[in-house]
């Protein structure tokens, strides 16, 4: 594209916006509403996913050995550990030796009343209970990994919680489906509304478009100012709610946390910067994209001259 053509398209695009001030403002408003809802939705879904991810991290599988005594079978345990780590669905493993298991038990069940454990002397009742805690990359793969672990030689028992993993995994999927559905609806509404606005601009300039086509303008040249108009409206429409959301996000999180202080112990919201690092480019892209597609749809039939 020539620089003069680009300048022409931008000039005409701005002129169109000025000419149809009311409809342009209406379009900016609609896109702003769309992006605002998308933004809120994105923040909710991302935070929800983040919370689910955190919860998923807590879900682990515990593996006990047939020969569970650390002192005697350390080498065998290490060999099994290597086999577990080689599984692609396993993120990490943590070894708990017989002594650590006993210490942990004492800490949990006897607490500060250590004297209760004195009766055991130097005996370790959990001498045969060394274990691996297995962390998964994806909670969906729990049953496959459990089957894999059960199939390994030297494994006595595999402990896991099927229902928690399934519930979290289902939650994640549901959130995904709902978000895709809502995003599609909002995008369709946005495209429909902006294409109507551009259509009004086109009807005003119908004669001009006809003349342009008859004197040899390419579709691309005729289309450019309308595309510029659509993209500009889309960008302005997206910027407003993004700025708004940026400032209210933190306030809302602060409010939720202060009102429901019990949440603090197990819910961790994402910080503003982390959310907006992705939301800003996505929001602008969606705004510009709605404008681009909306303008292309409305100009298409007018180019058939």
């Amino acid at each position: 594209m020539r620089i003069s053509t680009l300048a022409y398209s931008i000039r005409q695009g701005l002129k169109n916006i000025r000419r149809n001030k009311l409809f342009s403002i209406a379009s900016i408003g609609t896109i702003a509403a769309c992006v605002f809802l998308l933004g809120i939705f994105y923040a909710i879904v991302t935070n929800f996913t983040h919370i689910v991810d955190n919860a998923e991290e807590q879900i682990t599988i515990t593996v006990f050995f047939t020969n569970g005594n650390t002192e005697e079978y350390k080498a065998e345990h290490e060999a099994i550990g290597e086999q577990i780590l080689a599984n692609p669905d396993v993120a990490d493993i943590k070894y708990t030796s017989s002594q650590e298991a006993w210490d942990e038990y004492k800490g949990v069940y006897f607490g500060e009343r250590e004297e209760l454990a004195e009766g055991f002397g130097d005996d370790n009742p959990l001498a045969n209970s060394a274990s691996y805690t297995v962390y998964l990359k994806d909670i969906d793969k729990q049953s496959e990994v459990v089957a894999f672990l059960k199939g390994l030689d030297g494994i006595r028992d595999v402990n896991y919680s099927e229902s928690t993993a399934e519930t979290l995994s289902d939650f994640g999927k549901l959130a995904g489906y709902i978000s895709v559905g809502i995003i599609i609806i909002l995008l369709a509404v946005g495209i429909f509304l902006i294409s109507n606005t551009i259509m009004i601009g086109i009807s005003v300039r119908k004669e001009e478009i006809g003349i342009m086509k008859l004197i040899g303008a390419t579709d691309y040249f005729v289309r450019s100012p309308f595309v510029v108009e659509g993209v500009l409206i889309g960008l302005v429409g997206a910027t407003i709610p993004l700025v708004l959301l940026y400032f209210i996000y933190e306030k809302i999180i602060g409010y939720v946390m202060s009102q429901f202080s019990t949440l603090q112990s197990f819910i961790d919201f994402l910080p503003t910067n982390q959310i907006f690092k992705i939301m800003i480019p996505i929001g602008l892209l969606i705004g510009a994209g709605i404008g681009f597609i909306g303008s292309k749809i409305s100009i298409r039939k007018h180019l058939r001259v």
């Binding site: 020539r2 003069s4 053509t5 022409y8 342009m212 004197i215 040899g216 303008a217 040249f221």
Partner: peptide, 10 residues
């Protein structure tokens, strides 16, 4: 305009 439409230089 007729020249701009066919992208003649200014």
């Amino acid at each position: 305009f007729a020249q701009k439409v066919i992208e003649k230089p200014t």
